[in-house]
Write a protein that binds this DNA or RNA. Sequence first.
DNA 1: AAGTGATCCAACCGCAGAGGA
DNA 2: TTCCTCTGCGGTTGGATCACT
Length: 212
Amino acid sequence: MKPENQYKKGLWTEEEDRILLQYITVEGTGKWNRIPKVTGLKRCGKSCRLRWLNYLSPTVKRGDFSEQEEDLIIRLHNLLGNRWSLIAGRVPGRTDNQVKNHWNSHLRKKLGIQKQNRKIGGSSKTRATLTEETHSSPSDNLHSGAESMEVVTKEKRPLTDNEAPHGEAQWINYKHFAESPPSIPDDHAILASPGFLDFLDGYPFDVAWESF
DNA sequence: AAGTGATCCAACCGCAGAGGA
DNA sequence: TTCCTCTGCGGTTGGATCACT
């Protein structure tokens, strides 16, 4: 018998939310796979984590995206490509799922970016190859620097937030960035670098936003 | 009012990486 | 060193809702 079968799918009920919230209040986050065992909730740990991160967490902001948020997302997408978790990490109160959805349903349209054809006969793929496939078609890079930037981004893809050696961050002079805002359009490679991401982390939302 | 297509968004899926045994 | 579990990520799906005819 496959253990997955014991888990429920689909939308969460209020009762399920309540149970999950109660567990997290007492035990904190992490150890998601313990939740169904401890609480009797018919949800896999993965589903619980997602529900918390995208909906129940008090840090999640609901409601429409402001113009400022949209602008920031567009700019960050220019720099980072489809690295939604990184983008969301710099948009306070928004989750990667929210940002991704908002991009795909609103901003993509707003910017006039064509949606890629859906993959035929397959689900998700490895991140590296998927990024490659979904963004490498020249016809997909029709509009704005957003899409063309992703070429740069994907070359950097093997690096994540924590992958940069500490020394490498030195080639970004944080203080210089703080004092004189970066020249975004001409410096994509650097701006997509882990060092720049670290820089963004060190500054509050409004300061980082103003720098753009 | 009913039917239908479009849109939105919560949730799922498969995969990779980290870390511990 | 290898294996296993857990966590996180990004793409995709599907149900609910909206807009239009």
